[in-house]
Design a protein around this nucleic acid. Structure first.
Lengths: 344, 344
DNA sequence: TTGTATGCGTTATCAA
DNA sequence: TTGATAACGCATACAA
């Protein structure tokens, strides 16, 4: 347990202190701690005893400076607090930790004045690799990463031939929902998605929906594709707008959990029964889709898996493994009572 | 924009490189970058130009080693991915960033084999201060923090005279709900809370509820106080159990959002109308309470504020401000349609 | 205002 | 297997 701290602890014990106490050189202590196999059993024990006695904790700055690596991975994830990203970050962190790495997190607001400087800060703090959310970052960002020769990975972005991305097959997800609705004899649907202007993920989701509908001969009228900020209130408003349009759809697909929750609320208020009057399905990028009423049919997106896989990739790179092709994780349809056959 | 990276970039530019290019000494460059006021306008401009030309980014390890601080704050937040903590962490990070600090995040699982070693890892990586979730940590943890003389703060824990805590007044929160129900003429209520065995927050919430009920002469029968893991399924089961008990309560209070969501589902399934047959209220420690149906009356807990305040406190300490007393943030009752007068 | 020189606590190289 | 010692890249005390 070490000497009761507080007594004479003059700052922090250093390698040199440990070495002196153990009667060996600093090099030996260093090796005993980080390369036990290079050291005799006896001296290693002596060293460890000294370490405990002094409550020695290595100085990471010095270690990193000398070893030229920090065992830290940076992540840039905008506004994750109220998004579906926490699950991703949690799994990213867990997997990194399992491999001995620590997570340095930056979570800029959309209108963060720091802008591209955030990456610079991370690099300055010293990260061995970087995980970024999404794929649309300024060229400057990638240039900086390349210049510093830092492995990086994009999480949940449009897969691309040029960048390393861990994501899922957006088209497969859209097809799952659309096929499901098609099987239930729906021939005209509506879609409420996120703002495509500043959100690449919303963009690609909408694109996938349109394509899927077309390929199944399902009508998805231009007026029935609504854009909205992700949010409860926004989903509510969008749904009401849609209901006022007399567009003739028999099912609605919501682009994410928040929109879905808001839309359900609007339907409830409007007296539209689900799924008797209207079927509802959503893309489930957040756990709370499981809490909604009525229970939604959803496409479960592999959010946690993305984080884990991203960590694996980065650690692999840091261990010298080759760059692998973009990874697309599977999606899954979870059918609940909120979708039914076309109402007559 | 700097020389197109990749050409001859032999590793990374150092202070010395910048100094040579600018025709000044390393000391001058260092000061130009971190203490501009000590440097003449002219030379500072020269230095900055050189910095840009070389795309210089400081080496944080070396900087930290020399300056004896890392400008990094560690946070230990268990399993935040599926909890209400992300909001807290987000605001913690934002506030830290605003003050030039970076967040090093550790998020152990409940059964994380790393255990108390996590803090050690953080200290080893070099953090200037630490934020911990909750107040029940092993004595060893605090001892280590003291030994290393690291400022730390507890977020969302039972306030204590001995430790620095940023939290809210659990008793005030409970009183808010109970008073509200009392005003609606409820005289017997039930409470479904988290497992108190391993969760200090659940414990203190239950305690507060019992006390509040007693002080208002509201019955809260022992059998009507149910413990459950936080979770949707768990809330569902607990609610059904409660309904089977014939305990005569006219209102139910749910200990957190997940439990509330599950309970609502159970009520829906059992054909119990809210609030006509039964009033429901909950502690809102997660944004998604706003998405539930029927809309819940909740006590909004200041989760984001806790993070922000914790950051302020730590930064204050690091800037030499004195230790302040435990901080208790205000809570707020948000009344919605889910609570009504006692059904006849 | 600027330069010089030392030290920060490790790791790693090279001998022994 | 171990010891001595030179980096690692920066901040800072001290001099100029």
């Amino acid at each position: 347990m070490a000497t009761t701290a507080g007594s004479g602890s003059p700052g922090r014990a250093s390698l040199a202190n440990v070495a002196k106490l153990a009667g060996v050189s600093t090099g030996t202590v260093s090796r005993a701690l980080t390369r036990p196999e290079m050291i005799s059993e006896a001296t290693r024990a002596r060293v460890l005893r000294a370490v405990e006695q002094l409550d020695y904790v290595a100085n990471g700055s010095a270690r990193s400076l000398a070893a030229r690596r920090t065992m830290t991975v940076g992540a840039i994830v905008p506004r994750f607090g109220t998004s579906s990203f926490p699950i991703m970050i949690q799994s990213l962190e867990s997997q990194l930790a399992a491999d001995g790495y620590t997570l340095l997190l930056a979570s800029p607001d959309h209108n963060d004045p720091r802008g591209p400087a955030i990456l610079r800060t991370l690099l300055e703090r010293g990260v061995d690799a970087v995980a970024l959310l999404g794929a649309d970052h300024p060229a400057q960002t990638f240039a900086l990463l390349e210049a510093h020769q830092k492995p990086y990975v994009l999480m949940w972005g449009q897969t691309s031939r040029r960048k390393e991305v861990v994501s899922f097959h957006e088209q497969a997800a859209a097809t799952l929902v659309v096929d499901h609705l098609h099987d239930l004899r729906h021939r005209a649907i509506a879609f409420i998605g996120g703002r495509t202007a500043d959100n690449e993920r919303a963009r690609s989701r909408r694109r996938a929906m349109i394509k899927a509908a077309r390929s199944r001969d399902i009508a998805l009228p231009r007026g029935a594709v609504v854009e909205s900020d992700y949010g409860f209130r926004e989903g509510y408003d969008a749904m009401l707008e849609l209901l006022g349009g007399e567009l003739g759809f028999t099912a609605v697909v919501l682009g994410n959990d928040y929109l879905a929750a808001g839309a359900l609320s609007a339907l409830d208020q409007a007296g539209v029964r689900v799924p008797e009057d209207l079927s509802v399905a959503s893309f489930n990028d957040n756990d709370f889709a499981a809490f909604l009423h009525p229970p939604l049919t959803t496409v479960r997106l592999p959010i946690g898996e993305i984080g884990r896989e991203a960590a694996r990739y980065l650690v692999g790179r840091l261990h010298g493994k080759p760059v692998h092709a973009p990874k697309r994780l599977p999606v899954e349809l979870v059918v609940r009572a909120s979708t039914g056959p076309v109402p007559r």
